[in-house]
């Protein structure tokens, strides 16, 4: 790290660009949490790269002072993978929406879980495609109809947590955009985790989703906050012995069960975590040099390849 003192939230502030999100959007909460988490993580802005997909959430890198790539719809995980493998010294944060990650990017969501490259993935999950004016996203449940939809949804929602478990994600958490302190803590934990860390972040879309509103999460209709912290109830999603298949299965089953909990009580926090070899570990097992040297430092343009040529003589 080039800076002598630890960075503060201010170091991640952008002054020449202002969010054009709607008032009351959960994106603000996630942006603030990202900046605070980066400061807590103690990485200098130039050591961080935020990679985003397309949609309202995709604009996030424009509002945080780090390196940033605002990429394509559904391809954020591909780009983040390339960035991280190219330069392992970077703290890589992938950011995208629910449509981006669970719809158009669903194939990459699954395969990124299998690959377990060391980066953090934040999914802004609001149930709708906001930037195209409120169509149902993959997390919109069957039968639901928000005000922007002409008809109720006639297909089932994807279960992001369940999909993440079966895809092999090694850190799976759920956050809420309006619960700042908890979200900051989750993002820090996710960054500290070795491997791909997913946080599915529930957030209101005040313009198009009139069902998953702040009032809904507050539970105005039922008299108590719907979201609750798993940790408060003694839930422990961490696999303490990754070689113990029984523990793995039990923890995955518990997380899956929690992922279906919806309605009056919505669980928040780390649902599942396990320490498993990352993709980088796999590469290192093939070539030990990779452990110490990022690709960008290891490459030697113009190097002598005559020994390879000679193999063909």
């Amino acid at each position: 790290m080039a800076v002598a003192t630890l960075p503060t939230v201010k170091d991640f502030a952008v002054t020449d660009s202002h969010p054009d999100w709607c008032g009351g959007c959960g994106d603000f909460g996630i942006l603030n949490a990202v900046k605070q988490a980066l400061a807590q993580r103690g990485r200098a802005p130039h050591d961080v790269m935020v990679v985003s997909g397309i949609g309202c959430s995709g604009k996030l890198p424009h509002y945080v002072r780090t390196y940033g790539l605002h990429t394509l719809h559904g391809r954020v995980l591909n780009v983040a993978t390339g960035v991280k493998l190219a330069n392992r010294d970077l703290e890589v944060l992938a950011v995208g929406g629910d449509g981006d990650g669970y719809g158009i990017g669903a194939g990459y969501f699954v395969n990124s879980g299998r690959r377990n490259v060391d980066f953090t993935y934040l999914v802004h999950n609001n149930g709708v495609y906001g930037l195209t004016k409120g169509q149902a996203s993959p997390t919109m449940q069957r039968g639901m109809q928000v005000k922007s939809m002409p008809e109720p949804a006639i297909i089932d929602a994807v279960n992001p947590i369940g999909l993440a478990i079966s895809s092999g994600y090694t850190f799976i958490a759920r956050g809420y955009a309006m619960a700042q302190r908890e979200l900051v803590g989750l993002i820090v934990q996710a960054m500290e985790h070795r491997g791909t860390a997913l946080i599915d972040i529930l957030q209101p879309c005040p313009v198009y989703n009139d069902l998953l509103t702040i009032d809904f999460f507050r539970g105005r209709d039922i008299g108590h906050q719907r979201t609750y912290a798993l940790a408060d109830e003694g839930y422990d999603g961490k696999v303490h012995d990754p070689s113990n298949i029984d523990e793995i299965v039990a923890k995955q089953q518990a997380a899956l069960a929690k992922s279906y909990e919806w309605g009056d009580r919505i669980p928040m926090g780390v649902l599942y975590q396990i320490d498993l070899p990352t993709f980088e570990d796999g590469v290192t097992s093939r070539r030990p040099e990779f452990e110490k040297t990022s690709l960008m430092d290891g490459a030697r343009p113009g190097m002598d390849v005559s020994s390879l040529e000679d193999r063909f003589r």
Binding site: V51, L69, N87, Y108, M296
Partner: peptide, 18 residues
């Protein structure tokens, strides 16, 4: 997992300096 991923991984790595 497919050529979309291949391409965009390579673009990400190129941007990252490799």
């Amino acid at each position: 997992e497919d050529e979309v991923a291949s391409m965009n991984m390579a673009v990400g790595a190129a941007h990252a300096g490799v």
